[in-house]
Structure formats: C-alpha cells, structure tokens
Design a protein around this nucleic acid. Structure first.
Lengths: 235, 235
DNA sequence: TGTACATCAGTGAACGCGCGTTCACTGATGTAC
DNA sequence: TGTACATCAGTGAACGCGCGTTCACTGATGTAC
C-alpha cells in the first residue's frame, strides 16, 4: 500500500473509484449489457472522453467491475469463515454457503456477471483468475480442515473413478485440499457446482412458482451437500 | 394441426420459420444481446420493417426463440427418457441428464438464454411456462416412477423439514410426483438445481482450468445425485 | 525562492456506426357476388 | 367464369436515439535546476 501520494495521485485514485462506483450502480440497475461509458460520464458530470484517462476501454472498466465483484463475494465468504473456530466444520460450511447466497441475492446483476451467461465478445483476462478463486479456496479449505481433523467421512463411491480423474483429483487436492482423497476431492468440486446451482436458480428466478420457502430449502440443500461431501452433520 | 392451407398461409408459416431460423443462427453466434431485427432482415433479403408483419417487436421474436429452445431441450430429454423401459430407473436418469448436457454443450447461447442471466428489461411471458417445465417434468417422472415401483430409497434426512416446506413438498408431489414423500420431493427439487448447476458451470466455462475430464466428472456427479435422491444405483 | 518545462486531467467536436419502430405506399393474392 | 373489393406482404424513407472511440486543444499541477 502506497502511503505518500501527491494531490494528483490522490485525486486520480478517488475519481477512479467514483467511476467504478457509478458503473457498479448502473450495472446493479440494468445489467452488464446496459453499462455505457457515456452514461457513467454523464452522471459524473464529465465528458465521455475524459473516462479514457482512467480506463482504456469499456472492456477494461468491465474487467475492473468483475474483479471487484469476485473480491466482494470472496471477502464475504472469507469473513463468514473466519468468524468461526477452525474445528467447527459444519457451521463454517453453512456460514460460507449462506454468505455466498446472501451476497448473490443482494447483488443479483453482479452475481449474474460472474456466474451467469458469459458476456459475448468479452474474454476474461488472466487477472480475474486470482479473485475468482477466493470463494473456491474458502470452500476447499473447509474440506481440507475436515480431513486434517479426521472429521471427513469418505463414503464408498457408487461408481469408481477412472484413472484420468484420479490423477486430476490428486493434483487438485495437492494445491487446494491437501490430505483429501480422490473421491472426496471430486465430490468437493461437484459440491461447489451444486451450491452455485441452487443459488443461480434462485437468483435467476427459476424457483419462482416452484418453491416459496427458499430459506428453508437452501438450508436443507446445504446440509445435504455437506453430507454428500462427507462433512460432519450439524450439532 | 391445420392441414388445409392457402398459399398465403403456407408462405406465412414458411417465412415465420425462416425468420426464427436466421434469428437462432445469430443467437448461436453472438448471444441474445446481439440479436437484431435489422440484421435478421438483412440476411433474409428483406427490409427491416417487413419483419413486423410476423413479429410485433424484438421481444416477441425473442420469446419465440425461448419457447423453441425450451421445447428443444424438453424434447431431447423426453426422447432420451422414452428410449428406455419405465422400470430402468437408473439408466433413464443418466440418459436424461446426458441429453440435457449434450443439448447445452451443442447450443451454449440458447442454453444461456434459458438458464443464464435473465435478459434485463425482458419479462418472460406466461406462455413460456409450459415449454419450460417439460424438462422438469421428465426428471420428476423418473422419481415418481421409482416410487411407484418401490425402488425409491427415502434415506433419513440430516435435518428435518419444517412445516411450511412439508406443505409445499406435498403440493409439488401431488402435481408432479404422486406417491413421493416430502423429503424425497424436496431432494428431487434440489437435485434438479444440482444437475443444472454442474451443466451451467461447464457451459459457462467455470470448470476450465479446474477439471479436464468433464465427461467422467459429469457421470460421477449424475450418479451421486441419483444416490442423493434415493434412485437405485447403476447395474 | 523563482523560473522553465514537462506532465497530465479534462474539453468539445467529430467520426462512423447500428438500432427499433412507424407510416404512407404499391402491388399481388384471396374472396364474395 | 368474371368482376369489384378487401386483405395482406413487402417497400422505402424517415424519426430519434445512443453508443465507443479519437484527436487536437487548454489550462492546471508537478518537477528540475
């Protein structure tokens, strides 16, 4: 963190932030497709070409928003995780899942930007990978800790893993979940997609007209996914 | 089905179809946001205003594409389901899941239109509900048949259902899965979101750089979801 | 401390583009008597 | 079977809009001597 800043540097940082904030506001209201540099500039009382001093293109601004959004969910998940003792596996799992869901429901358009349809013509640059994996690493960390504490129940698989998948599971475990066996690793990856599956269905409106008790359903789902991964039960 | 048609009626039906086909082609290439009436008209050698004889607005054309897409996945699922004996629960489950995934991978933009970010400013009209539920009913039918044949294993829940959710489960079961208990019904609904969760993650690119063996992972996931719902194991 | 020059934020006009939708019209196809 | 009229597909021009991006510029802030 740079501390000493000239007035110019400070102004630049502040205005960059203001641009992102206004862009985020528009994103939240009308979605990513409706985000326009000109509209952002208009709202800030600037001329549209002035934004090019801060972002080289619309895509670059979009990338900044994506990175911020990944960081926002990531931080929400990390905060929920940190608020509990490491051994409290089941409650950590529930807390993190709820944090992700709450963030998604509070920021549906940002959630859609991250986990919905890819924006056509936009290729996520490499610098989004780090922030994107924060949430994933939190979930993986819970499974890894469960294994570390001997609390991970590796149930017999209904179908055996092929050799290719075993190898891949080993690599994933090595980097994100040391000490977790291949089947449990694959189950954890699948659980990750399951979690976002139910969140996406709720945020995108597919449960409307199907289920009203969304909180209760989500809790049941999270607990059942925990069981599926082999995490200890609640209480 | 109307059989007797005047030349005018036949021409109208054909051109309506051509418009939808061209629109679908553009949708497949550049996504829903890039779909433009003018571009469609240009490709068909018509003037843009001529399209208004067939669709009252861009949204109406989009709705037609959505309905067709729902019908396409729905039919793929139904065909896969019909190809097997009713008692062959496990293979029906796998076949239907694979049919959905294959359709999604072959038609990523259409899939995104149905299950990705909602199109901002577009409210799906009531007439999409019927086609949208075809896939869901196929999956529900498998669970219902499993119950009917005494092949559904209702495992003890890790967390009990609240009264509100029990009531809702009863209603869902009554319309879509007669004979299935409340917990199994909720599990079926959750399984439905899980299935689309993994398909969405694959189609939207979130598994890129995480897992290479996508076919194998999907098979494992489908089998594990079957176990979760209480469907019989393969073989 | 003061001056000369370099850096940089912001302006305003312009380029070139594509979009959805409306409307008065022409001319061909269908229908009623 | 033939004529008069109604229906309807498609045309072409226009309205009004907003967009991303470039570029030569002004004037203020910062830096080096």
């Amino acid at each position: 963190v740079t501390v000493i800043q000239s007035a110019r540097e400070r102004a630049r940082a502040e205005i960059t932030q203001e641009i992102k904030d206004e862009a985020r506001r528009q994103l939240a209201q009308d979605g990513a497709a409706a985000l326009s540099l000109r509209a952002v500039a208009r709202r800030l009382g600037m001329v549209s070409s002035a934004l090019y001093r801060y972002f080289a293109s619309r895509d670059e601004l979009l990338t900044a928003l994506i990175v911020d959004a990944y960081d926002a969910v990531g931080e929400a998940a990390e905060r929920a995780d940190r608020s509990l003792a490491a051994e409290d596996i089941s409650r950590r799992w529930h807390a993190v899942a709820s944090a992700i869901r709450s963030w998604a429901l509070a920021n549906p358009h940002e959630y859609a930007l991250l986990y919905g349809s890819p924006v056509p013509g936009y290729a996520a640059p490499a610098l989004t990978i780090g922030p994107a994996s924060r949430v994933t690493l939190v979930l993986a960390g819970i499974v890894a800790d469960a294994a570390r504490f001997g609390m991970l129940l590796e149930a017999p698989p209904r179908s055996a893993l092929g050799p290719a998948l075993r190898t891949e599971a080993g690599q994933i475990a090595a980097t994100a979940m040391p000490g977790v066996g291949p089947m449990a690793t694959i189950r954890a990856v699948i659980a990750w997609t399951m979690l976002f599956g139910i969140v996406s269905f709720e945020v995108f409106g597919h449960l409307k007209g199907v289920i009203q008790s969304l909180d209760a359903t989500f809790d049941v789902a999270v607990e059942e996914i925990a069981a599926f991964v082999g995490l200890p039960a609640e209480h």
